[in-house]
Design a protein around this nucleic acid. Structure first.
Length: 264
DNA sequence: AAGAGGACCAACCGCGCGATT
DNA sequence: TAATCGCGCGGTTGGTCCTCT
């Protein structure tokens, strides 16, 4: 299937953006909103391709971006999410308010990779380095049992650092030892910036909506408040449930089929 | 002071996917 | 049903800054 180039490369600027280009882009998007990236450069008077404009806006110019260093909490959350999702930077970014996929990707490659390596963890598999030679490609809870013996031989290496006292009593380490279906984080950033049409009466939105998916058939906004409020935790290391808990990644509600997730 | 090498990060590139025609 | 469009994603590149020798 053929594919036309995204822009006339001969007549577009490349490389670093100038202040003037930034100003033009910001002014245009303020006036007309995001979208139609293909036609935006011409309309905004920019000699850039649409993709370049989109990237510049999303990664650098968006007003809601959080600049500055990552906090320790963000570090740990990224590690946790990466162990679940692999290199799905956009999904990970969706759970970190004000952070972009590109920023997280860069941060992962420059900081967290080293951090994990220094802990003796393989950044690709989130398993101890001396297990790294095994080809682990799929997250599987049922597989934990089968690997029990293998893993027991490496019990001197603890996984990513989220193990609890209770878990230490049982020398079984799952592939994703911290994959807690009750895992909860604070409500996503989108909740605060959602247009009114995305808010339910109680002000809580579902996972789908939190990712910015509009009018999805999977939207459970109408039921999530009840579900979150009535959920109970069976995990030994879940935090104390509160009624504002968030259905992390939609695992509890079954929106995300975590068993089919694959790690690269 | 200056050069080398590494770290960091903005930006580019190619591809996949869903929507549209 | 196939072709095309437009967008978004993940991988990679290249320029700049920093640190070390």
């Amino acid at each position: 299937m053929g594919r036309s180039p995204c822009c006339e490369k001969a007549h577009t600027n490349k490389g670093a953006w100038t202040k003037e280009e930034d100003d033009r882009l910001i002014a245009y998007i303020r006036a007309h909103g995001e979208g139609c990236w293909r036609s935006l450069p011409k309309a905004a008077g920019l000699l850039r391709c649409g993709k370049s404009c989109r990237l510049r806006w999303i990664n650098y110019l968006r007003p809601d971006l959080k600049r500055g260093n990552f906090t320790e909490e963000e570090d740990e959350l990224i590690i946790k999410l990466h162990s679940l999702l692999g290199n799905k930077w956009s999904l990970i970014a969706g759970r970190l308010p004000g952070r972009t996929d590109n920023e997280i990707k860069n941060y992962w490659n420059t900081h967290i990779r080293r951090k994990l390596l220094s802990r003796g963890i393989d950044p690709a598999t989130h398993r101890p380095l001396n297990e790294a030679s095994q080809d682990v490609t799929t997250i599987s809870f049922s597989g934990a049992k089968e690997e029990k013996e293998k893993i027991n031989t490496n019990s001197n290496n603890s996984p990513i650092g989220f193990i609890t006292k209770d878990e230490k009593k049982i020398p079984v380490q799952e592939r994703c030892p911290d994959l807690n279906l009750d895992l909860r984080i604070s409500p996503p950033y989108y909740q605060q910036t959602q247009p009114e049409s995305f808010k339910t009466g109680g002000g809580t939105i579902c996972f789908i909506c939190s990712l910015g998916v509009k009018n999805s058939k999977d939207c459970t906004c109408s039921t999530i408040t009840t579900a979150a409020g009535s959920s109970s935790s069976s995990s030994s290391h879940s935090n104390s449930n509160n009624s504002s808990g968030y259905d992390f990644l939609g695992l509890k509600s079954g929106i995300l089929e975590y068993r089919s997730l694959e790690m690269k």
